[in-house]
Design a protein around this nucleic acid. Structure first.
Lengths: 198, 198
DNA sequence: ACGAAGATTGACTGGTCAGTCAGGGCGGAT
DNA sequence: ATCCGCCCTGACTGACCAGTCAATCTTCGT
């Protein structure tokens, strides 16, 4: 029965991976459930054996990715490095996802704002924003960052900057070779920590 | 015949305004052309007398807004104020749009990434990004901003920060009373110019 | 006053798909 | 070997809606 559970989990992952690929290629709206089934090499109806709906697939993509991301951000937060270093690490975390799984980023970037459901139901994103806020606030408490700035707004600025860089890559408007990514990381960190520093 | 042209233009504006309101409320995808006609108080078919398609409405919303925005940014650019001041003015321009026309911002924010068409066909957005880049580069040339930073990436960071603040307001995650907006403006400008300054 | 050009109407069509379901097959427990 | 329960299949359905079009009305120049 353990083997069964494993096979089920494998199937779910297989279908989800197919969904990511298809959504990345055509966008959520233009993607047909049949395309996903075909990509996964299974019958149409089987998708519905493992997922509630097409929407459920998208939500699962968001939720699992952000749960994972949240855990990593949590690790950075708990490591207790200087705030500027924490900001650098979180930036690297987010931006390097592009290289690790471009299709995933394509989906995440293109569908975030699309559906209120996604944004509202996936509270993990809100929690990530709160983690950024805590990192900034800690920097303020330690005197590393200026304390007259609003930590909430600064976190929003931080997050927005990262998302826009990812958008630039997704839309092919920014170069994304290995070195470009490293440069982007340095640049974003330089602007943000430079602006936050006392 | 001038009167006729005026009436046509009025109708187009009337329908566009209805579209903005409906798209803002339900999102582009969930909005029915019939909803727009009803909101405008006209028959279904008349929408198609003034616009090619539902997509055309969305694109027109983007294009006219960004054409206008681009002109304003151009004015700031040409005024030749110090770069930090130009950054402040552009920030004010973008963020105050929320108060001026919330529904419009709701549509712009929620549908930007949605459709590749929109992002690709409305080159005005790209041009706005280029204007930001020029403002930053000028600041670097005058020695006001650090010149080791990439102006393109810094413009992306700038734009991303502004868009995310607007998103925060659209999604109701950030307070947006008059004073909150003023504070957001100061905060964003402080972080960005602080980070860019030599 | 008349008629042509343009404005307005809304019922209808054609195509699209998400999700269902009834039935066939297979693996593993006994 | 048998059989139960889950896996898997894919044709089908029901709903939905963008866009069309033939008919009617309004405006305005002559």
């Amino acid at each position: 029965m353990v083997a069964r559970a494993d096979r089920q989990a494998d199937r779910r992952r297989q279908i989800l991976a197919a969904a990511v690929k298809v959504f990345a290629q055509k966008g959520f709206h233009a993607s047909r459930v049949g395309d996903i089934a075909e990509e996964a090499g299974i019958a149409y109806g089987l998708v519905y054996h493992y997922y509630e709906s097409k929407e459920d697939l998208l939500e699962t993509i968001f939720r699992t990715t952000w749960t994972e991301m949240l855990a990593r951000i949590g690790e950075v937060e708990e490591a207790g490095a200087p705030a500027a270093e924490a900001v650098r690490q979180v930036t690297a975390l987010l931006l390097r996802t592009w290289r690790r799984d471009p299709d995933l980023v394509r989906v995440l970037v293109r569908e975030v704002t699309r559906n209120q459901h996604v944004q509202q139901e996936v509270e993990e994103i809100t929690q990530a924003m709160e983690a950024l806020e805590r990192i900034i606030r800690r920097g303020q408490e330690s005197g590393e960052f200026r304390s007259e700035l609003d930590s909430r707004l600064s976190a929003v600025v931080f997050y927005g900057a990262l998302e826009e860089v990812l958008s630039g890559w997704v839309l092919g408007q920014l170069p994304d070779r290995e070195e470009d990514i490293a440069r982007a990381e340095q640049n974003v960190v330089a602007v943000l920590t430079g602006g936050l520093k006392s």
